[in-house]
């Protein structure tokens, strides 16, 4: 149902991909860890290799849990599908786009 308005109601999205240039937003959720209330949101380059993303972006955040063990990270999922995590390939190449949601277990 369209917004009822007195004029043509057409506005751009506040977080459209172009506003982030070569970067994008990615959400990461640690499944089953209730120490964190929600998934985290990061701004990262689309070209960032997945391994670097995990080591430099995800690990420092997950380390808020003193029991976090980077070696135990497994079962990556992109939205609801299993993700063939590959440290060398970029987020973009792995199909991880703007505002994608990743899950992992540990």
């Amino acid at each position: 149902m369209p917004v009822k308005a007195l004029y043509e109601y057409e506005f751009p999205s506040a977080d459209r991909a172009e506003l982030f240039g070569d970067d994008q937003l990615v959400y990461v959720h640690w499944d089953g860890n209730p120490l964190f209330c929600s998934a985290a949101c990061f701004r990262v380059p689309q070209a960032m290799p997945f391994g670097e993303f995990v080591a430099q972006i995800v690990a420092p955040w997950a380390g808020s849990d003193p029991d976090f063990d980077p070696a135990a990270v497994r079962d990556w999922r992109l939205f609801d599908e299993p993700l063939a995590a590959d440290d060398i390939r970029s987020l973009h190449d792995l199909g991880i786009g703007h505002k994608a949601l990743l899950h992992f277990s540990a």
């Binding site: 209330c37 985290a40 955040w61």
Partner: peptide, 17 residues
């Protein structure tokens, strides 16, 4: 424990998900 980062927000209510 603080959350060392920013949360994912709901587009409508704007509360962390």
């Amino acid at each position: 424990v603080f959350f060392q980062g920013l949360p994912q927000l709901c587009q409508v209510c704007q509360i962390p998900m």
